[in-house]
């Protein structure tokens, strides 16, 4: 089965960085979103096997977007990729339904580790 991913981050640079890593790990990027609202809409339209989600974004933040996606599909697989590594925010994201939390900046290996974790 094809592994598809939706990348959500408000900066084009970070989307490009994640895209390169995910493609080299066998994923097909089916969509890119710049805020939480786009994330929710694109998830419903594309039903990707994975979502990478930033937290700090305009219009709707990543935590709210995770909650809305999980409410729509409780099997959604979401990994948070955010610079905000404060403990309470990590817990918020995991409670909302994220499967892992990667703190920016990261090495490509850390993303690969998160992918391995969700695939197991």
């Amino acid at each position: 089965m094809e592994k598809t991913v939706l990348i959500v981050d408000d900066t084009a640079f970070m989307r490009m960085t994640l895209k390169n890593i995910l493609v080299s790990n066998g994923y097909t990027v089916v969509g890119e979103g710049e805020d939480g609202i786009q994330a929710v809409n694109l998830y419903k339209k594309l039903r990707p096997s994975l979502v990478t989600m930033d937290i700090t974004m305009p219009n709707m933040d990543g935590i709210k977007a995770i909650k809305e996606i999980i409410e729509y599909d409780d099997q959604a697989v979401i990994i948070v990729v955010s610079a905000m590594g404060q403990k309470a925010l990590v817990i918020d994201a995991l409670n909302a339904g994220a499967k892992d939390f990667v703190v920016k900046p990261f090495q490509p290996d850390r993303i690969a580790e998160a992918l391995q974790k969700i695939n197991n």
Binding site: T11, A12, F13, T56, A83, K104, P105
Partner: peptide, 9 residues
């Protein structure tokens, strides 16, 4: 975009 991400991080 990179500068904004750098600032954020």
């Amino acid at each position: 975009s990179l500068l904004m991400e750098l600032g954020n991080i």
